[in-house]
Each structure stands twice: as structure tokens, then as C-alpha cells.
Design a protein around this nucleic acid. Structure first.
Length: 918
RNA sequence: GGGCGAUUGGCUCAGUGGUUAGAGCACGCGGUUCACAUCCGCGGGGUCACUGGUUCGAAUCCAGUAUCGCCCACCA
């Protein structure tokens, strides 16, 4: 432990090697126990205001991709900021059992050994899954650590752990009791590949070119009961195999063509079933033939029609989507083979009336890409309407804010059109539905671990009860995540302290799968919205803007990136490129920018540490530099650090994290390094400055660097921690930056910013003129500077620094333009006019003798260009002020600004003209 | 079919009403001075997709158009 006020003596290695720095630092954080809000190293007390980030628990069988990395970076940024602000910051790590996704992965693995789900059986399959998951679970957690995520590992949770299991049972029972969950026979989306039903969300609409076949059905001769060879009605279908499940033909009630046959019957081929011709206005007269075959068990529209007309609903597909139970020779044939066989047979019979290409939309399984078949099944559903109403209420009342707010429209649309949520899955890996059925078919739902002791309805003994074979949709347990992880349904201290949580951060692509369900279930089950802010990030795309995917081969491995450029660089790059909810392209340039930035900071820190004046002991206690010893440069440095602090605070408050990194990049590089350090170097090396003054300058640098490190820490935790370790501490500072206090934006100084800013502009002007005149970069030239009274003191104090930065020797300050009587001593020079300042730069002898006019032709061209520009701006300013509407209607501050600007431009134009002799 | 987003320098993107639109990369010129060549200095480069409107003032707000991308959708 560092003694208060003492400095550590750590030296920064010359070269910045992120991979060498990052590992040990994470270990130090772990050892210090600073991640937990109540850990040994935590600075927030038990009464501190809590702040909780909900992160999407990654798939247990998964590994880190850039999307994870980006979210983790943003989440960790928020949590570190809150922690430094002294809040009880909880960042809870977790894993999702990812039911269907995990089964999909395992199925492929066991397939290599010639095994399958069916061949293993439920019990052995689940054993296999447990073993598999035990292997994979550390992978993603290790990657999160590598990224620097300050997750509270002691609270690690898992959607298949006991706590989650209990939450699932209690949640479900509660929903059933409130009539918000029910069991019914309904059309579900069946994926033959996954052998389970899936929710509407998991069905992906894919436009495809299919075929629309026209098929003749023969009308029945009611006298004989036999089909008439020549009297037919032609239906159009894209799925001929569903003929086997047809129980009606529908036409539009007002369709003249078919008026006469409504009420008659047609014979369905193969199944030889006679079905009625019905009238229903679902039929679009202009489509196909205007006659629609009705397959109530395998089509959503047809199902509705079937219900309206009391049609029978035979199911003709089995779990693998092979034809079944039709009593035809097609039974056992796969749907694709059956289609071909049926078409061939129809053609033979002469009942295939035609076919044509048809643009249509097919529902495919998000997971397996199989064509989803609607099928009648008895399953559990969650009643979505009332839950959605409450969720909408929460966003409408602003109890929950969505960032960026444009996603609220999506949110509104989806929740207002929501359909009941099918939660039954015919899978094995997941939470078994806690419903038991007695031999009489009574249903008992229990939240007890061992199930009910008897049938709730008839009292039948537990031994005769059979539990539902199905498991829950994986998102059902995920939907309980914000509170199940804190101990719900038990009344735990964590739940009381951290719920409702603060911010949910995730990608917008799972807003419905996950976010909406958490909000719906959270409000219903806990009575409160689970968080106050939903922060949505965009997708990471490849440099061409394409989605990254393994099949495209354009995925970037975050681990490889971190090995090469460092976790800090990756985090910075991902956050820097992000704009709320907007997708971003990610490529090597962004990473390079971030790595260079880290390197720059490292080297700046090495300079600061190495620049300690002799008068300051290596272990000197950190002191606030004496105000009276600060020069304009020191005040400017301090003020700019304060300005950056303000900008960072603003960005954080608005969830504009890209703004945060931009402010830091500019503040640290373009201001602190480019000017602050360069200005400070001069006084640090100035023999004439007192040792107290030099110390004050150094402490100013230390102070500014310290502030930048704190501000940058949430984004680049490793490099900032490493550097901070080598800096003297303040009284009361902890040992580690991760728990150090967030800086306050103190020290703004507009006088220093204005004065020093103008002088720096002059330096830029002189450099510009020199470069323009092609003067050797290394040469030192005599310079006269004319400084107005108001800036005299600052200029005086900064003269040595200006001289160095502008390579001026000698540099002479004047109150009035000396007309070549100063340092330039009558030689022809370059004229520099910047704002209120003016300078003459003496040319080397050779160059001076070349030019005809003052400063040579090149200089004249430059000044003319500047004059033209200034005149243009002046004209614009005057025109604006001449406009009565502007002066009367624009705010006073704007008008005043325009007047000031006009005055300054007038003066500048005059001076430029004088120089040009115009 | 409905909805959303994007369109700013060669490239990638910031910038939601206020004077002269920024950055990084790329490009050109010049730099081995003791923090940094993963660097330093200087520069060129944009009628802010288009049309109209609101306003004293528009890249920014409104309406429409175009192109690209995405989401949602049970017409066989």
C-alpha cells in the first residue's frame, strides 16, 4: 500500500507494449478486489447510490466476437465511470445456456461421431451437453477478462443455475395464476430441422422465387356422389403437398365466376376426401385463379378460415416434415419428395392445369435455415397484450428511456402488434416446463422443485402425474435476467439494493427477443421496470459495410487484435467509431489510430515523469502548485484539461461515447502534447526560472496528465492504470486508478485560453509563412512581434516558449510596429498577421536579396490570399450587420459577436493592405 | 405493402439553427533537436445527394425526389 502523498517510483519502459502491460494489471485489480461494489478495494460505501449495468449474458458455447467486444467496452466504460464517481457500481457477469443455439452446436459435434439427439436419448444427450458446456464456459469469460471488463466475478450467474431455475418456475406459475400464460392447441411455427416449434421472431422472412401451380379439383355429382370428369375448379398453390390436408375450397362471396359452385363439393385427390366449396372474403379475386384451397392445419390464413367455417383440420406432416397420417402412398415421403411425386401424379391424371414462376416470401428458421411449416400443436403461450401494454406505458411515461430515441418507433410498432408468445420448445437443453398432467388430462403447474404432490383438480397422486416434455424458449429465462440474477423471487439484499437496475446496454438486433421481454416480465413480476435506460449500440461491420459472418470469412478475431494492438486500442477504436445505434465499419485504420493514440499517451507520460526538475524529490508528495507561480502557459494547460473534462462529462451524460473519445483524443494529443508539453519544456529548461517556478510547471503537467488519465481510464483502462502507477499521488488517492475519484472540471481560465490561444495562433502563422517561403525547417530567424497592451504580460512571460516554437532568434516584442527597426533590422522579412498580433520574420541573407518586394514574391502572394479571404469575410459580416432584420431579430450575443468580428476584420484588412502597400 | 436509417473532402466518419463545416487515413512539401518516425511541422482538397419551404440566418428544421441499407408484414 502506498503511503498517502508518497510517490511510487515505477519507471515506464521506453517502448509501449500493451500485451505486456495488460495482463498483470488485470491481476492487480482482481487481487485488490475492486470490481465488486462491496469488495475489499471498493471505495463506495454501503450507502452509495447504486449503479447497475445489465449486459446480455453471452452464449455459453460461444466465443468473443467484435460485437461482444464493443458492447463489453461500452458497458465497462459506463461502469468504470460510475465507480470512479463513487457509486456502488455493479457489473454482473453471466452466461446464457442458449438452448436452441447450444443444441445446434452440440448436434453437429456428435454428428461427427455418427450420433444424433435421437440415438443418444434425452438423458445421455443432456449429460453430453453438461460436459460440453463445462468445457466451453471458461472461454468467453476469459475473453471478457482479456478485454478488461471489470465484472464482479463473485456474482457470476448462469441462466441454468439453481437461482434461474427457481425464478423460471415461480415466474411461470405466477403468469399462469394471473391468466397470462395458457395452454392451447394452435398453429405454431415448426422447424423440421430443429424438430421444435419456434417463436414468430425466430422465423425469418426470405423472398424467393417459387412456383405457383394451378390444380384442377373435380366437382362432385351430388346424384352419384362421384367426381365429374369435366366439371372442375382450379386452385392455385405454391405448396401442392398440402393438398393432402385440404378440407375446403374457398372463393370470394361476390365472385361471379364461382357463384354457382358455392355450397357444392369437390374431391381432394389422393386422400379422396370430398370437401365443400365455401365463400369467404379472405380470397383475393385477382390472385391466381380466384379459388383458394384451404389447409387449416398448415397455413395461418387457412387456419383462421377453418375456424370460421368449422372445418376439420387434419395434420399431414410429422416432426421431420414428412407426410404422415394421410393414408396415401405418400406417407413417409419427405415434403420435398412428396411435392414432386404429387405433381407428377397430377400431371399424369391431367389435373395439373399450369405452373408459373412466382415471387414469394418464405419463412425460414433463423437457426437452421429450414423452411418453417405451420403446424397444429398443443403448447404453452404467454399472453402478450397486457404485458405489452405495460411495457409501452413505461416508455411512454419516460420511466424507461431508449437511447437513441428513434428506436422507440420500432418499439411502439412491435409492441402494439404483438401476438402471443409461444414458449414451448420440443428441445431438451433448457428449463423443463413445470406443468404436470394427470391421466385425466388435468393440468397442474408447480413452482416446487419436486413438482406438485397431487393433481390440483382431481387430487390424483403425484406418481400418476407426468411432467410436460417440453422446455421453455431460451428467452424466457433471459427475460428474467435483471432480477433473477439479484435473487428474485427471494427477497435478497442485492435485489433491494440494485433493483431496478440502471442501464441495459445491448445491440438493437435483440430489442424484441430480449429487451422487450425483460421489460414486460419485469414490470409484471416485480412491479417495476427493470432499468431506466435502454442503450442500443449498432452492429460492427467489415470495412466494406458487410455484416461479419463466419461463412463470409470476414470476421475479425478480437483476441488476435488485442494481442497485436492491445485491449485498450481495441476498446478505444470500437467506442471511437460508434455513434448511438448506428452501425459502424471496422477496419485496420481505426485500430491503428487507437494504438497510435495509446502510444502517444505513453510517450507523453514518459516525458512528464522524466522531466521532474532536480528540485523535486523523486518521492515528493504531490503538491498543488502555488497559484502565484503559474504562468500563462500553466494556466492554459490547466484550463484545457478542465475543458476536456467538461466535454467528457457531457458525452457521458448523453451516452455519446464517440464524443467522449474525440474530446480525449483532441485534448490529449492536439492540446496537451502538441502545445502544453512544448510550452512547459521551455520553462522546465529555463535557467533563469526559479526552482519553485520550474516545480510549479512540472506539477501542472503532472496534474493535467493525472486528470487526462482519470478521464480516459474508462475507455483505456490498462494503459492509464500503468501510467498512473508511475505518477505521484494526491493525498487520499487510492493505490489504483480504477477506484480513484473522477476529476472535477475546475480551473477554466478564459483569460489564459484567449491570450495563450492567440499567441499559439501566431506561432502557427509564423510556421506557415516560413514553410510557404521554403525556409529550411531547422534555421533560426530573427522575429519582431507587435503585441497589443492587453496581451503584453502573457507575451512577455511566454516569449522564450514562442521563440522556441517559432524558431525565432532573437525574438523581440514591441508595443508598436517598429517598421524594420527591431530585430529584423531593416532586412526584408515575412509579414505575419494573425488576429491582433503581427510579426516580422527576417529572411536569411540569401533569400532576402532574391526577392524584389518586401519578403519576396511568395510572401506577397500569401498575404494577398489572406487579404482576399479577410475581405470576403468582412464583406459578409458587414452585409449581415447592414440587414435590419438581422440586427433586430437575432439574439444580442450573436449581433455583438458579428460587430466584434467586423471590427477585427476591418483592422486586419487594414494591416494587410498596409503591408502590401495597397 | 408499412416503417426506420444513411447520403458531408479520394476513403471512413464527427458535427441537430449562429460568424470562416471538422477529424483520422490517404495525398503533396519539409523535418535524425535529448517523450514519441506508432513521430513532428506545413499544405492542397468539400456549391454538406437533389428540389422547394420555414427563418434575420439552414449541413442542421419541414415537405417532396433520388440512390443505398435495414426492420416489420399470413395474399395462396
Amino acid at each position: 500500500m502506498t503511503e498517502p502523498g508518497a510517490t511510487t517510483a515505477a519507471e515506464l519502459p521506453k517502448a509501449y507494449r500493451p500485451s505486456a502491460v495488460e495482463g498483470p494489471i488485470y491481476e492487480r485489480w482482481l487481487a485488490a478486489d475492486v470490481f465488486a461494489p462491496d469488495g475489499a478495494g471498493a471505495t463506495a460505501g454501503p450507502d452509495a447510490e447504486p449503479f447497475t449495468i445489465i449486459q446480455p449474458p453471452p452464449n455459453i458455447t460461444g466465443s468473443l466476437h467484435l460485437g461482444h467486444a464493443q458492447r463489453a467496452a461500452v458497458e465497462d466504460l459506463m461502469i468504470r465511470h460510475a465507480r470512479m464517481r463513487g457509486r456502488a457500481a455493479l457489473f454482473l457477469p453471466g452466461l446464457d445456456h442458449a438452448s436452441i443455439a447450444a443444441q445446434f452446436v452440440l448436434d453437429r459435434i456428435i454428428a461427427k461421431d455418427g450420433q444424433s439427439r435421437q440415438s443418444l436419448g434425452r438423458e445421455r444427450y443432456l449429460e453430453r451437453m453438461q460436459a460440453f458446456v463445462a468445457e466451453t464456459r471458461e472461454v468467453i469469460l476469459g475473453q471478457e477478462r482479456r478485454l478488461g471488463a471489470s465484472l464482479d466475478w463473485g456474482r457470476l450467474r448462469y441462466t441454468m443455475d439453481e437461482g434461474s431455475a427457481k425464478a423460471v418456475r415461480v415466474a411461470f406459475k405466477t403468469l399462469v395464476e394471473r391468466d397470462l400464460a395458457y395452454r392451447t392447441e394452435a398453429l405454431v411455427n415448426w422447424c423440421p430441422g430443429c424438430r421444435t416449434s419456434v417463436s414468430d421472431l425466430e422465423v425469418v422472412s426470405t423472398p424467393e422465387t417459387g412456383t405457383l401451380w394451378s390444380i384442377r379439383y373435380h366437382l362432385i355429382d351430388e346424384a352419384t356422389g362421384e367426381p365429374l370428369p369435366d366439371e372442375t375448379v382450379t386452385v392455385a398453390t405454391t405448396r401442392p403437398e398440402t393438398i393432402l390436408g385440404d378440407t375446403a375450397v374457398a372463393v370470394h362471396p361476390e365472385d361471379e365466376r364461382y357463384r354457382d359452385i358455392v355450397g357444392r363439393r369437390v374431391r381432394i385427390p389422393f386422400v379422396e376426401r370430398d370437401v365443400p366449396v365455401i365463400a369467404d372474403d379472405v380470397v383475393e379475386r385477382g390472385f391466381g385463379t380466384g379459388a383458394l384451397k384451404i389447409t387449416p392445419a398448415h397455413d395461418h390464413d387457412d387456419h383462421a378460415t377453418g375456424l370460421r367455417h368449422g372445418l376439420s383440420m387434419p395434420t399431414i406432416l410429422d416432426d421431420a416434415a414428412a407426410i404422415a397420417n394421410t393414408g396415401t402412398r405418400f406417407d413417409g415421403l419427405d415434403r420435398v419428395a412428396a411435392r414432386a411425386a404429387i405433381l407428377a401424379e397430377l400431371a399424369t391424371r391431367g389435373d395439373l392445369a399450369g405452373e408459373k414462376a412466382h415471387e414469394m416470401v418464405l419463412g425460414r428458421c433463423e437457426r437452421s435455415d429450414d423452411v418453417v411449416e405451420p403446424r397444429l400443436k398443443t403448447q404453452w403461450f404467454v399472453r402478450a397484450r397486457p404485458l405489452a401494454e405495460a411495457a409501452l406505458g413505461a416508455t411512454r411515461s419516460r420511466e424507461i428511456r431508449i437511447v437513441p430515441d428513434r428506436f422507440e418507433k420500432m418499439w411502439e410498432h412491435w409492441l402494439t402488434n404483438i401476438r402471443d408468445w409461444n414458449v414451448s420448445r420440443q428441445l431438451w437443453w433448457g428449463h423443463r416446463i413445470p406443468a404436470w398432467y394427470c391421466p385425466d388430462g388435468h393440468v397442474t403447474v408447480s413452482s416446487e422443485l419436486d413438482g406438485p404432490s397431487a393433481c390440483e383438480t382431481c387430487g390424483g397422486p403425484a406418481s400418476e402425474l407426468a411432467q410436460d416434455q417440453d422446455i421453455f424458449d431460451t428467452w424466457f429465462s433471459s427475460g428474467l435476467w435483471p432480477f433473477s440474477t439479484l435473487g428474485w423471487p427471494d427477497d435478497r439484499a442485492d435485489l433491494r439494493r440494485f433493483y431496478p437496475t440502471s442501464v441495459l446496454e445491448t445491440g438493437w438486433e435483440i430489442i424484441f427477443f430480449w429487451v422487450a421481454r425483460m421489460v414486460m416480465l419485469g414490470i409484471e413480476l416485480t412491479g417495476r421496470p427493470p432499468f431506466h435506460t435502454i442503450s442500443l449500440s449498432g452492429l460492427i461491420r467489415d470495412p466494406e459495410g458487410k455484416k461479419m459472418s463466419k461463412t463470409k470469412g470476414n470476421v475479425v478475431d478480437p483476441l488476435a487484435v488485442m494481442e497485436e494492438a492491445g485491449a485498450d486500442a481495441l476498446r478505444f477504436a470500437l467506442i471511437h467509431g460508434a455513434s448511438a445505434g448506428q452501425d459502424q465499419r471496422f477496419g485496420p485504420q481505426k485500430l491503428e489510430l487507437a494504438r497510435n493514440f495509446a502510444n502517444k499517451l505513453w510517450n507523453a507520460a514518459r516525458f512528464v515523469i522524466g522531466a521532474r526538475p532536480a528540485g523535486v524529490a523523486a518521492d515528493a508528495a504531490r503538491v498543488e502548485p502555488d497559484e502565484s507561480l503559474l504562468g500563462p502557459a500553466e494556466r492554459w494547460i490547466r484550463s484545457r484539461a478542465a475543458a476536456t473534462t467538461e466535454a467528457v462529462d457531457r458525452g457521458l451524460a448523453d451516452y455519446q461515447f464517440g464524443e467522449v473519445t474525440r474530446a480525449l483524443y483532441d485534448g490529449i494529443w492536439s492540446e496537451f502534447c502538441d502545445w502544453g508539453i512544448e510550452l512547459a519544456k521551455v520553462r522546465l529548461a529555463d535557467e533563469e526560472a526559479s526552482s519553485e517556478e520550474r516545480a510549479a510547471t512540472w506539477w501542472t503537467l503532472v496534474d493535467a496528465l493525472d486528470r487526462y488519465l482519470r478521464l480516459l481510464h474508462p475507455v483505456m483502462p490498462f494503459v492509464t492504470e500503468a501510467i498512473w502507477d508511475a505518477l505521484p499521488r494526491r493525498d487520499g488517492d487510492p493505490e489504483l486508478l480504477i477506484v480513484a475519484a473522477w476529476p472535477a472540471p475546475t480551473g477554466r481560465d478564459s483569460a489564459a485560453e484567449g491570450g495563450v490561444g492567440a499567441l499559439l495562433d501566431l506561432v502557427r502563422g509564423i510556421r506557415n509563412a516560413r514553410a510557404d517561403a521554403q525556409i529550411a525547417a531547422g534555421s533560426w530567424l530573427a522575429v519582431d512581434v507587435v503585441v497589443p497592451n492587453a496581451m503584453a504580460a502573457a507575451a512577455e512571460a511566454l516569449a522564450p516558449a514562442l521563440a522556441r516554437l517559432a524558431r525565432a532568434k532573437p525574438l523581440v516584442l514591441h508595443r508598436e510596429r517598429p517598421a524594420f527597426t527591431g530585430a529584423t533590422a531593416g532586412r526584408r522579412g515575412l509579414a505575419v498577421i494573425v488576429g491582433e498580433l503581427e510579426a516580422d520574420v527576417a529572411l536569411p541573407e540569401a533569400a532576402a536579396n532574391d526577392g524584389g518586394a518586401e519578403g519576396g514574391a511568395g510572401d506577397r502572394t500569401r498575404l494577398e490570399k489572406e487579404l482576399a479571404e479577410a475581405e470576403g469575410h468582412l464583406a459578409a459580416a458587414r452585409a449581415r450587420l447592414a440587414n435590419e432584420a438581422f440586427t433586430s431579430r437575432a439574439p444580442a450575443a450573436i449581433v455583438d459577436g458579428a460587430r466584434t468580428s467586423e471590427a477585427e476584420l476591418t483592422e486586419q484588412v487594414e494591416r494587410l493592405r498596409a503591408r502590401l502597400g495597397a
